[in-house]
């Protein structure tokens, strides 16, 4: 029973997802088979979504699953399948590249980790303690933020009711949202144009001849 009592489930789940995310990220790095890379990447990003859930960012987590894993990666896999000819299936980097990049990467990693633990505020929970998760459900706030209302910036009374209006200069994330929407549209049109199927037609006689072969 004591082992149960001693287990911090939050840490357990964090560790689980963190190890999955990092482990599969490493697997992406070290495998040379492009399809397996895509598979590991899926799992890594999925585990990251789990981390987002743990951190209370549900909406981001689901977005990650939906757009990243379900959309972007499927797109990637499509690309992989379209170009997956045997010689490109596993292109190995040269060993010199490996050494250089591992040294550089190791240094970078060391720096990043050192700085991650370097700031006291990051290392510790604040004195007031964290908010209970039930109050950190933020989907509505995120939605409101995207439509131009920062509900988290409202002045509240003790009971949590909104007291005053927001300054009219604060439009939340409305503008970036609109820009990103337009950007996405442009990008999709552009991508479709770039990769469009250009059709070469052959004459009727040529086509009959070619199909016999």
């Amino acid at each position: 029973m004591t082992i149960w009592a001693a287990t911090d489930w939050y840490a357990f789940f964090f560790l689980l997802f963190a190890l999955l995310a990092c482990g599969f990220a490493a697997a992406v790095l070290f495998t040379s088979n492009i399809v397996r890379m895509a598979f590991y990447l899926t799992l890594s990003l999925g585990a990251t979504a789990g981390l987002f859930f743990l951190a209370g960012a549900e909406f981001v987590g689901v977005m990650q699953l939906m757009i990243y894993v379900g959309g972007t990666l499927v797109l990637l896999v499509f690309g992989v399948m379209l170009t997956a000819r045997a010689p490109f299936l596993s292109l190995r980097p040269r060993s010199g590249e490996w050494i250089v990049s591992l040294i550089a990467g190791g240094t970078l990693l060391f720096l990043l980790i050192a700085s991650a633990f370097g700031v006291r505020n990051w290392r510790t929970a604040s004195d007031s303690g964290p908010l209970p998760l039930a109050e950190a459900q933020t989907a509505t706030a995120v939605g409101a933020g995207l439509t131009g209302v920062r509900v988290d910036r409202l002045n509240r009374d003790a009971a949590g009711h909104a007291l005053s209006q927001l300054p009219h200069t604060d439009s939340g994330y409305l503008l970036p949202f609109v820009i990103v929407s337009v950007h996405l549209l442009v990008v999709l049109v552009g991508a479709a144009y770039l990769a469009r199927a250009k059709v070469r037609r052959r004459s009727a006689t040529e086509s009959t001849a070619s199909v016999e072969g």
């Binding site: 899926t42 699953l65 959309g71 896999v77 989907a139």
Partner: peptide, 26 residues
């Protein structure tokens, strides 16, 4: 009981296709 349940279900259901793609490729 999440307040993004609809989104969650759609997202996770969309992942099923990965298994199929992998099966097909593998």
């Amino acid at each position: 009981d999440t307040n993004v349940a609809v989104f969650f279900i759609l997202a996770v259901l969309g992942l099923e296709v990965f298994g199929v793609i992998l099966a097909g490729y593998a």
